[in-house]
Amino acid sequence: MKDSSPLIAIVDYGAGNLHSVTRAVEKAGGTPLITDVPEDLAKADGIILPGVGSAKSAMDFLVEKHIDQEILNQVDRGKPLFGICLGMQLLFGENEEGPTKGLSILPGRVALLRGRTKVPHMGWNSLNIIRQNPLLEGVEEGSYVYFVHSYHVVVDQEPDIVVSTTDYEGAIVSTVARGNVLGTQFHPEKSGDIGIHMYENFMRIVRGEVPIT
């Protein structure tokens, strides 16, 4: 059973709505487990860090509940981790929102979207796919996905972790990946069929059906 419907821990920061992430996991064939206890992360086949709330309160919550350390442990063991929106930003280090410091799993920092006509960047925007990754398998160049964010990830070193960018009066990082660690700045659970397809891709990664790069 575990192989056919992987258990996906969805980390609950106590901040917001996890309804759509939960339903998207189900739709993609996974079994969602909304949780704020470290033991559940160990038990799960894959982990999702969703995108709700603010960076500082989310990090404070993860530290207080000792979830931050458990995420790092599980990632070290090769468990797939998928950060969405704020969840992707938390994969990085220095974060202007708060300010705070994220999990520092990936090299880079988080900065306010500056110099744009409108902030937040809100709505459907397209993906410029830079390199192949199992998360975007079957996703066409130029596909539209739904964004809503005021901060963005800046990758100074290791440009190879950037899988896609999106043009918003300048390029912003929209998908990142390094091995078992994946992230999207957009919300696949709000991006219609193409977003559900990305969740299905994540399930394939969790099941070990595709090699992670």
Partner: peptide
């Protein structure tokens, strides 16, 4: 929200943080 994976807004009659919480928890974005 169970069926449709695009953003959903609820307007009308929302007058407290608790009202907001109720509709967001139900699946509104």
């Amino acid at each position: 929200a169970n069926e449709i994976f695009i953003p959903l807004t609820v307007a009308g009659g929302i007058s407290s943080v608790e009202d907001m919480h109720r509709v967001l928890r139900a699946g509104a974005d």
